[in-house]
């Protein structure tokens, strides 16, 4: 179900106070407060796989390269390993590509049910005329994209122009039609955590289905502190409206340990519901390989070599 959004409600966020050292402290201690071992660790890692938006966003992407990525999305973990754990039907949450790669991805994914997410709106900087950005969304949707990862105009945040940000996001939401929208805030560009919180609120009010940290192209991408601030705004939005908005950290998660830490963050700050692909996605490309190695070790008792795992 899509987030219908609300009117622009400045009063929900204009008095937001964020103490950065306290956020850092919570983010630093949170992973140390929870520990997962053995089967529980394996299950949480497989859950992370379920939530991955397996991503390729490179200038040299080709249809064949995208097809290989899609094959990995369909079988993210070696069949023998899954069989040993008695797990079946595991896929990633989605694949995420540029608009021109949506059609090849759709073809490659066939009837697997795995959604295709497309970045749009002049990704990653977003500094294109609004009509072109909206046209890009419509193009991606036409190509069959199920989800659109849009980027916001950072200048609206930096200049405190919340109405402009809201209007832009509303227009994008409309252009998405039935496709679900992820709003990339590019938190590395917004710098202050209060900016991150305010932009998160506006994005949710404008109808984003997920709020997403980064394009993967900023100087700093997803971090636990930034994520903590964003998920707390999701909590507050839910408390006010009853609407559950999802969260997508992107660009900073590389290790199995990261995958556990972010899930602990979701569980502790938002609860069990936010551990499903419907409300939690991880934008990543190399993360899956590390998870697969850990799973392999869990099943076989041997440490794994990446060349023995299928390439994404």
């Amino acid at each position: 179900m899509n987030n219908p959004g609300t009117d622009l409600r400045l009063d929900w966020f204009q008095n937001v106070r964020i103490n950065t050292p306290a956020v850092e402290r919570r983010a630093a201690t949170l992973p140390a407060r929870r520990s997962l071992k053995k089967d529980h660790q394996a299950a949480w890692l497989l859950n992370a796989v379920r939530c991955i938006d397996l991503t390729t966003l490179a200038g040299d992407d080709t249809p064949d390269r995208v097809a290989r990525l899609c094959a990995k999305a369909r079988q993210p973990i070696g069949a023998d390993l899954l069989q040993a754990m008695g797990v079946s039907g595991l896929t990633t949450g989605a694949v995420c590509v540029y608009p021109t790669m949506v059609a090849p991805a759709k073809r490659a994914l066939g009837n697997s049910g795995i959604p295709v997410a497309s970045v749009a709106t002049g990704f990653p900087a977003g500094l294109m005329p609004l009509d072109l950005r909206l046209a890009e969304i419509r193009y991606a949707v036409d190509q069959g994209a199920d989800e659109i990862d849009i980027v916001i105009t950072r200048a609206h945040v930096l200049r405190g122009n919340w109405t402009a940000l809201y209007d832009e996001l509303r227009a994008m939401r409309e252009a998405c039609g039935a496709a679900r929208m992820k709003a990339i805030l590019a938190t590395g560009d917004l710098k202050s955590l209060e900016n991150v919180a305010r932009a998160s609120h506006v994005a949710m009010q404008a109808g984003s289905d997920w709020i997403k940290t980064s394009t993967g192209k900023e100087g700093v991408n997803a971090t636990l502190p930034v994520s903590l601030v964003m998920v707390r705004t999701i909590r507050d939005f839910h408390a006010r409206t009853g609407i559950k908005v999802g969260f997508k950290p992107a660009g900073g998660l590389r290790t199995a340990r990261d995958a556990i830490n972010w899930q602990v963050l979701m569980a502790e700050e938002l609860g069990r519901d936010w551990l499903t692909p419907n409300l939690f996605r991880i934008g990543a490309s190399s993360l899956l390989g590390d998870i697969e190695r850990q799973i392999s070790h869990h099943v076989t008792g041997r440490y794994a070599a990446s060349h023995r795992q299928a390439l994404a």
């Binding site: 520990s35 997962l36 071992k37 949480w44 497989l46 859950n47 008695g86 797990v87 069990r272």
Partner: peptide, 17 residues
């Protein structure tokens, strides 16, 4: 259901002593 797939439903932490 296996143990791992069960945990994937509950998403409990389990013991870590």
């Amino acid at each position: 259901m296996t143990r791992v797939s069960e945990i994937m439903q509950t998403m409990e932490y389990g013991p870590s002593v």
